[in-house]
C-alpha cells in the first residue's frame, strides 16, 4: 500500500487529486510500457521528480488539465497525459513526455491520479500503485509540500527558459538571484505558472 496524499483543488473539489512519490523504483520500464500501450489500468501521470519544482508548479498544470478535459478542450486523450503535456512550455507531446515523463531507468517517480469517478479513492490508488510499482513509497506531505524535494532546479530553469539572472539582470535580477533558495523557487514558480497558463496561445 503506497502512501497517497489527496488534494482538493479549490473550485474543482468534486475531483480530488491523488499524488504519491516513490524512490528506488526498479520497474520504470514496465510502467512506461503500460503507458505506451495505453493500458487503461495504468492511466496515471507518471512524472520525473527532478522536473517538478513546487506544489504550485504541479497543481497549476493539474488544474488546467482537469479544466480542459472537463470542458472538452484537451489536446491529448486523457487528463493524465494532458498533465504531462501541460507541464512543458512547447506544444510537442513527445517532447513533454521525454522531459516530464519517466524513462526506462527512472528510479524516482511522482504519480498523479485524478478522481474522475467516485470509485477512484485514496485507498484504491494506494493499493493499485503499491502493488504495481516496485519501489519504496515516500510521503508527499499533507499539502504535497515534498513534491519538489528531488527537483533539479537548473534543469527546470532550462526548460522554462528562466535565466538565473532574472532576464537582463540589473536591479530585478538580484531579487531573483542571490536570495534564499525558497525565495528563488517562489520567483520561479510565479513565472512558471504563467508560462503553463499561456502555453499554446
Amino acid at each position: 500500500m503506497a502512501k497517497v496524499r489527496t488534494i482538493n483543488l479549490p473550485h474543482y473539489t468534486a475531483y480530488p487529486v491523488h499524488i504519491c512519490m516513490f524512490k528506488d523504483v526498479k520497474n520504470a520500464a514496465f510502467l512506461r510500457k503500460q503507458l505506451l500501450e495505453a493500458n487503461p489500468e495504468f492511466d496515471y501521470a507518471f512524472l520525473d521528480p527532478t522536473m517538478i519544482l513546487t506544489p504550485q508548479h504541479i497543481l497549476s498544470a493539474t488544474l488546467l488539465s482537469l479544466h480542459l478535459h472537463l470542458t472538452s478542450r484537451a489536446k491529448t486523450r486523457t487528463p493524465h497525459s494532458e498533465l504531462v503535456f501541460r507541464l512543458h512550455p512547447n506544444n510537442n507531446i513527445g517532447e513533454s513526455y521525454r522531459k516530464f515523463g519517466i524513462s526506462d531507468d527512472s528510479d524516482r517517480i511522482i504519480a498523479v491520479k485524478l478522481s474522475l469517478t467516485p470509485e477512484i479513492t485514496n485507498e484504491s490508488v494506494g493499493q493499485h500503485l503499491g502493488s504495481v510499482v516496485e519501489g519504496e513509497s515516500v510521503d508527499v506531505g499533507e499539502g504535497v509540500e515534498n513534491v519538489g524535494m528531488w527537483c533539479d532546479v537548473e534543469k527546470v530553469k532550462k526548460v522554462y527558459k528562466l535565466d538565473s539572472n532574472g532576464g537582463k539582470g540589473r536591479e530585478g535580477g538580484t531579487a531573483v538571484n542571490g536570495n534564499a533558495p525558497t525565495n528563488e523557487r517562489k520567483e520561479m514558480e510565479a513565472v512558471m505558472s504563467g508560462v503553463i497558463t499561456l502555453k499554446g496561445s
Binding site: 504550485q56 497549476s60 488544474l63 488546467l64 532574472g166 532576464g167 540589473r170 536591479e171 530585478g172 535580477g173 538580484t174 531579487a175 531573483v176 520567483e187 514558480e189 510565479a190 513565472v191 505558472s193 504563467g194 497558463t197 499561456l198
Partner: peptide, 9 residues
C-alpha cells in the same frame, strides 16, 4: 524581475 502579480491560471 519587475514586481507584478503572478499569473496563476
Amino acid at each position: 524581475g519587475v514586481k507584478v502579480p503572478a499569473v496563476l491560471g
